[in-house]
Every structure is written in structure tokens, then in C-alpha cells.
Amino acid sequence: MLTQSQYEDYKLVCRLEHIKTFYSSIKAICFSEFGTLQASEDGLLITVEQGKSIQATLFIAPEFFAEFKVDGAQNFSIKISVLAECLSLFGLSDCSVKMLYKGEGAPLLLLLEPHDDEQVSTECSIKTTNVEEPMEYELDSNSSSLNKIFMRGPDMSHIFHELDKAADEYEFTISPLKPHFKITTLGVMQAESSVEVAKSSDMIILFNCRATTVARYKSQQIRLTNKALQVATKVAIKTDDSGLLELHFMMQADDEEEMYVRFFITPLLELDAN
């Protein structure tokens, strides 16, 4: 379809043999209008933010691509819902996808080819805009309170799924002592509920906790991670005494290679305790 010289015009060329993990990862972070794509030799990052309190980033390593070519660093923003819509054009049919970008001002081209029907193909041209620098969040890795839990994705998904949706806030407690890992729902009329997981539970792969941390988050923001949770095979929860919550989701469909989605969620400010 493209001649060699045309091909060389492109600053970014990458191809995925299978679309499924990529599509579910994009859907998992599709909670705001625009997303930022940052491509470099280290791979492709797609970041979505809402306000200044929640950020999600999809990271795809170069090895994951069947083909990955980037000329320097290429950064641009696109409407993330349009990207998701384009990736879903062929529904459940497995496709390969090729992404091409000529550089600033040029559209992002997407070529979709279903594996089971050679007579059909789709070309999408998505308008790009100038990049909006994503916020930078970081946990204090030297802090004595840096707590980490690695869990099995489906189990974690069950627990989150069963949290009372009527609640305004969720309180996360991570502690070296009992209850180890606890989520309490707050702000429900006539009822309060909580769930606890012991660190010895089989769903916990790693429990690395030095000091007790307690922080509250908006339930609606926690629920934005649902789509990522539903497909994640493994989840990492990290936090420190600042309360900033870092969640890593390992996305893996069938026997495809894994992609990672990382969420940062800022805690609610502690009101004066009684």
C-alpha cells in the first residue's frame, strides 16, 4: 500500500499483530476526552487525565510491537474516544493494526485488517493536536511508609466490584498488622460496610508493608479503574503516607504479550479529625 519513500516520510510507524489487549487497554483509560501519545525508543505511552486528581497511562514496550520505528521523540494529543471507536470498528473480529504518524500537524493514520477476511480493510485518519504535558506524580521511594501489595487481578476485581456503589468515599487501610488490607465504604445512608483481606490470602502475591497508611478516595475515581481491573491479570497497589495511590494493571489477553496501565489517584484531604 505504501511505497518505500512514502514509508520513510513517517516519523512513527508501529504495528500490532493482535488488537485485543490494546483495545481493552485503551477502553480502560478512556475516561476523558483527550489523550496524549508519547513515542520514543523506550516505547509508547498514552496518558489520560481528569482534573488534577486522576491520571492513567498505558505503556507499551517496543518488544510488544510486531514493528516499531520512531524517529526521535514524537508527542501529540488525540481524541481518545475516537481512537477507541476506530479500534472497535470490526467488533469482535481479531485484526492487526498499524499506526503511522508523519509529525507535527499530521493526522494519526490507523490501518485495520481483520485476520479472518482479506477482502475488507479500514483506514482511519485521526486529527492530532499539540501535546498537553501530563502531570507528574511520584511516590516517595525512600519513604519508610512506602507500602506495596501485588494481587491477582480477578480476585481484586471481585472485591472492587462488590464495594457499595452508593458510597461517596472509600477508605483504604494498609497495615503490617491486622486488618492488613481493608476498604471501608463511607457516606451511605443507614449502612456502612467494609472488606478485609488478610496478607496470607492466596490472592496476595506480595505484601510489602512497613507502616500503616490510611487514606480516603472519591469512590467515583476508584471506579474509573474498573475497566482496567476487569481485564488485568495482576494488580499492584502502592501508596505512602502522603496517601497518593498508584495502581498498576497488567493487561494480557489470550497469549498476547502484556501491556501495563498505571493509575495515579490523589487522596481526599483529611478533614479535621474529631
Binding site: V82, L89, S121, E123, C124, K127
Partner: peptide, 14 residues
């Protein structure tokens, strides 16, 4: 066609 994207789907050998 929309403001944000143009999508062309091709069916061949019909």
C-alpha cells in the same frame, strides 16, 4: 467523515 477523523472502509473482490 467528522471533524476529528475520516474513516474509509474498503470491501474488495465483491
Amino acid at each position: 467523515e467528522s471533524e476529528m477523523a475520516t474513516i474509509t472502509s474498503r470491501f474488495t473482490r465483491l
